[in-house]
Amino acid sequence: MTSQTSLGAAVPAGGRIASPGRIRRALGRNAPGYLFLLPWLLGFFGLTLGPAIASLWLSFTNYDLLQSPTFVGTANYVRIATADPKFAAAMKVTFLYVVLSVPLKLAFALLVAMAFNRGIRGLPLYRAIFYLPSLLGTSVAIAVLWRQLFAADGLVNAALANFGIIGPSWISNPNYSLYTLVILSVWQFGSPMIIFLAGLRQIPTDMYEAASLDGASKTRQFFKITLPLLTPVIFFNFVIQTIDAFKAFTPAFIISEGTGGPINSTLFYTLYLYQEAFGFFRMGYASALAWVLVVIIAIFTAFSFLSARYWVHYDD
């Protein structure tokens, strides 16, 4: 393990093959660095890479924790692909969530960032306040709060009652439950907002001045200057938020109390995976589900990068 990692570091810039002596010297030179990295390296190999490799192996087995894993070849993957209606249901819910929450969240984040970019007083304070939900968003406490907000006798319905509307129990009605989770996600617009704000600051103001002199309206300036120059930032936010949305777990787990209900309407992919693993003790099958998700996210990200050359403008 150590020799492998150090080997890469020991190859000199010229690309010559390192002799053992050279490796030793390089190792000696870099030893303090590796020492400082040690906690992270231990965590990475022990808690991330090791378990990931183990789960790849488990995905070809049946394993219920009590008995040793039995090898079943690709049976788990075949079942996912051909005979698992819950997989299909979870995919549908997850894709719907990604497709709805990511664009909405990005649009909302951009809107707030643009409002902030006009140079309002006390910006750092507002920025901090608006960023706060992002820090809290994936926490259990917020999900519990959400459950209270959208319950039959929750705050949302109390507000609606003022207008004579009797709202349903949003979180336990299969027609609405997923949308409460989308709203929760949009509400956590803080981190893309901060990045958008930084991106907006980078756009030279003389461009806008020139455009105004030429008589371009604010809308036209937005579409012809702001958006094109912001595309690298939009792209970055899009990729990060999409990956996050695919992996969303806590809100659905808390709001449905781990059931993914009602009627699987909040059965996020990760929640289904969790149920299979820790509810029904099918560790092998759950591992296969996890690897399928890895592949799906990888494909999605690859497509994003491929498409980027057509719509992302880097100013070089």
Partner: peptide
């Protein structure tokens, strides 16, 4: 009604 029953997660509290 069903949206009330759906809140029951088989605990005393719910």
């Amino acid at each position: 009604p069903p949206d009330v029953q759906a809140l029951d997660t088989l605990t005393i509290e719910t």
